Simulated assay, not measured.
Amino acid sequence: MQGKPRFGIDAPTLVLGFAIGGPLLLVLGCVGNRVLPSALAGTMIGTGAVMATEAVLMTLSSLYGKRILLRRMVDALGLHGDEKALDVGCGRGMLLLETASRLPRGRVTGLDLWSTRDQSGNAAEATARNAELAGLRERVQIDTGDMRHLPYADASFDVIVSSLAIHNLPTETDREQAVHEIARLLKPGGQLALLDFRHTAHYVQALREAGLDTRRSWPQFLMFPWVWVVRGRKA
């Protein structure tokens, strides 16, 4: 197999909408500046500029900023190389493979429901291909499942990671259930790192209720929208 892994764009429908709608509003606002009320034309131009800028920033975030932050997040785990790890909501595998690259004697499982709304081209086959292209397929297991009902035994993993996944659950109850499931699967002494742009304070609260020593980072501005990293360790 030839080529490099491709990890797609996060929230592709939203990015596409901004990429089309932003320039369109800019053009309409500029063209209609002479016939439309100045306030309306100005609003169209301003909104279009914001949407176009967000499309660019979100694309750069998916392609570059996220990769840098995930690498730093995995580095901070201080892995020994023989851990058993889980990536919850692994998507096309950027964090999955970043983790696998640190586990020459270990193994990482990636689990997802494979929603293409959340990531372009999201599919188990795409993740497997990326693992092959990265030369890490033998270290990776790919499963399909719901993070609210993780299909693994208690205390199964030394390390659990997740990136931009838990916020996709529709209610606070769902998200709390997923976080409690993550805590259930962690071995005593195990650690986790969850990156997200919403609800991270609730993740911290739920993990502390589950008995984990937990902290949240300062906002990280290499991604757009900016994100936080929640870290925890099980006693």
Rank of each mutant, 00 (worst) to 15 (best):
M1F: 05
K4F: 11
P5K: 14
G8D: 12
D10E: 15
P12E: 04
L14V: 02
V15I: 14
F18N: 01
A19C: 06
A19T: 02
G21D: 02
G21I: 01
G22W: 00
G29E: 01
V31C: 10
G32W: 01
R34F: 09
L36A: 11
P37N: 07
A39G: 05
A39P: 06
L40D: 10
T43D: 02
T43R: 03
M44H: 01
G46P: 02
T47Y: 02
A49K: 00
V50Q: 00
A52N: 00
E54W: 05
E54V: 12
A55G: 03
A55E: 01
A55V: 01
L57Q: 03
L60Y: 10
S61W: 00
S62Q: 07
S62L: 09
L63G: 00
L63S: 01
R67D: 12
L70V: 12
R71G: 15
V74P: 09
D75Q: 14
L79I: 11
H80F: 08
G81Y: 14
G89A: 08
G91T: 06
G91Q: 10
R92K: 14
G93T: 05
S101K: 15
P104L: 08
R105E: 11
G106E: 13
R107P: 03
R107I: 05
V108R: 10
G110T: 10
L111G: 04
L111W: 08
W114S: 10
T116W: 11
G121Q: 14
N130Y: 08
E132I: 15
E132G: 06
G135Y: 07
G135N: 09
L136M: 13
V140M: 06
I142R: 03
T144C: 14
R148W: 04
Y152D: 08
A153K: 12
S156N: 11
V161W: 13
S162K: 15
S163A: 15
L164F: 13
N168I: 05
D174W: 02
R175N: 09
A178P: 12
V179G: 05
V179S: 08
I182V: 15
I182D: 05
I182Q: 05
I182K: 04
A183R: 02
L185T: 10
P188T: 05
G189Y: 13
G189A: 08
D196T: 07
F197W: 10
F197V: 02
F197K: 01
T200C: 07
V204Q: 15
D213G: 04
R216H: 03
R216N: 07
P219S: 11
L222W: 11
L222T: 06
F224Y: 15
W226N: 01
W226M: 03
R231Q: 12
R233Q: 14
K234W: 10
